[in-house]
C-alpha cells in the first residue's frame, strides 16, 4: 500500500538515527559483479531533515554508488537504508525526491519544455499548474526563452545541466540528490546553482550533494562525509571546522613604507602569535593557527592604522580537511 508523502515526517526512522534523522544508512555494503573489492564497505551515516549533507572523495570512492543506493537505483548487498523509515523504493519516498545525475541524459526528441512537462506529469503533480510550473522552473534555472522549444540534443553541456537541475526541482522535492550539479556550468550558472541551493536550504529541503567543488560544498553543506575506497573516513560538521590553522591573505587600501610596515607587523605578530610569511606594501600573508588568532591580527592591524581592504583565508576549511587526510590526495581508483 502506498503511503502519503506526509507520512515521511511521522514514520519510524530507525534505531541508530537521531530523532530528526531523515535518511539513515547503517553498515551499507555493495558489491559489483566481476569486481573483487567491495564498492561500499559498511557505510553508516544519517542525514537530518533540512540538512545539506555533502559527499566528498576521490573518483571511485563509492559516492555515486552510495547515491544510487539512496535513490533505490542500486540494490545493496547488505546493511540497512531508509528514508524517513521507508524503503527508498517506496512511492511515498519517490514523491518527495528530486535527483540530478552527474551527466544527465535526456530523451533527445524532447524540447526542454516538453521534457519538463513530461517530468512534471511523472511526478504526479496537478495538471492545472503544469504549464505555469514548467515556465517558472525554466526561468528559475536561467534557460533562455529561445531554448525552451529547442530539442535537448542541441543543448550545450551547461544548458543540459541547467535543464537537469530544473528536472530535479520540478516535482517540488523535499529531499534533493545532486551529483556534481555544477559540472559543466559556466560561472553565472555556478552562482545560480548556489542561490538555488541556499533557497532550498531556506525552505528546509534536505540536500545530499556529491561534488568535487570544495568551495561549493563549503558554502552550502552543514556536514560533509569523506569517503574513500567504499568507506567513510570521517564526517565533519562545517560549523565545527571554522577554527583551523590557515594562511590569512590581507590586502591594504593604502601603501605603507616598508620599514613602517615591517615594524608594525613585527609587533602584531609578537602580540598575536601569528607568523609573517610574506609582506609587501600592497598586502601580506600571515600564518594563523585559529580563527580567533586571525581575528586578533585584523583587529591589531586596524588599531595600528593599517588600512585593511580585505582579509580572507587562502584555503577553505574543506581544503584544510582534505589536506589533513593525505590518503585523499593520492591513488585515485579507477572508475567503477
Amino acid at each position: 500500500m502506498n503511503r502519503q508523502p506526509s507520512d515521511l515526517t511521522t514514520a519510524h526512522r530507525g534505531p541508530m538515527a537521531g530523532a530528526d534523522s531523515l535518511i539513515v544508512v547503517e553498515n551499507l555494503i555493495k558489491a559489483y559483479e566481476g569486481r573483487v573489492d567491495l564498492a561500499l564497505k559498511g557505510i553508516t551515516l544519517d542525514v537530518k531533515e533540512g540538512e545539506c549533507f555533502g559527499l566528498l572523495g576521490p573518483n571511485g570512492a563509492g559516492k555515486t554508488t552510495l547515491m544510487g543506493c539512496l535513490l533505490g537505483l542500486l540494490n545493496p548487498d547488505g546493511g540497512k537504508l531508509t528514508v524517513a523509515g521507508l524503503d527508498p523504493n517506496d512511492l511515498a519516498v519517490r514523491e518527495v525526491i528530486g535527483f540530478l545525475p552527474e551527466r544527465p541524459h535526456f530523451e533527445s526528441w524532447f524540447t526542454a519544455q516538453e521534457f519538463l512537462t513530461y517530468h512534471h506529469s511523472l511526478s504526479g503533480l496537478d495538471k492545472a499548474s503544469r504549464k505555469t510550473d514548467v515556465v517558472d522552473m525554466l526561468k528559475r534555472v536561467g534557460l533562455e526563452e529561445a531554448a525552451w522549444t529547442r530539442k535537448t540534443n542541441k543543448f550545450s553541456r551547461g544548458m543540459l545541466q541547467r535543464l537537469g537541475l530544473a528536472q530535479a526541482l520540478i516535482g517540488k522535492p523535499k529531499i534533493v540528490f545532486l551529483d556534481e550539479p555544477g559540472s559543466g556550468m559556466d560561472p553565472p550558472g555556478v552562482t545560480l546553482l548556489r542561490e538555488i541551493l541556499l533557497e532550498l536550504k531556506k525552505s528546509n529541503a534536505t540536500i545530499v550533494l556529491n561534488s568535487h567543488h570544495l568551495d561549493e560544498m563549503e558554502r552550502v553543506c552543514d556536514r560533509v562525509a569523506f569517503i574513500r575506497n567504499g568507506q567513510i573516513q570521517s564526517i565533519k560538521s562545517m560549523s565545527e571546522e571554522s577554527d583551523y590553522p590557515h594562511v590569512l591573505r590581507m590586502r591594504f587600501a593604502e601603501r605603507l613604507e616598508d620599514q613602517v610596515l615591517n615594524a608594525k607587523f613585527a609587533s602584531i605578530a609578537a602580540a598575536s602569535g601569528a607568523s609573517i610569511l610574506e609582506i609587501d606594501p600592497r598586502g601580506a600573508r600571515i600564518a594563523v593557527t585559529s580563527g580567533q588568532m586571525a581575528s586578533a591580527v585584523i583587529r591589531m592591524c586596524i588599531e595600528n592604522q593599517i588600512a585593511v581592504q580585505s582579509a580572507s583565508p587562502e584555503s577553505t576549511s574543506l581544503e584544510h580537511l582534505f589536506n589533513e587526510m593525505p590518503e585523499f590526495l593520492i591513488g585515485d581508483k579507477p572508475d567503477e
Partner: peptide, 19 residues
C-alpha cells in the same frame, strides 16, 4: 538505451519518479 547498456541513460530519472 535501457536495452543496450546499463549506464548513461535516462532510465534513472524515470525510476526515481513515483511510479
Amino acid at each position: 538505451s535501457l536495452s543496450i547498456g546499463g549506464r548513461s541513460d535516462y532510465m534513472p530519472l524515470i525510476f526515481t519518479r513515483p511510479l
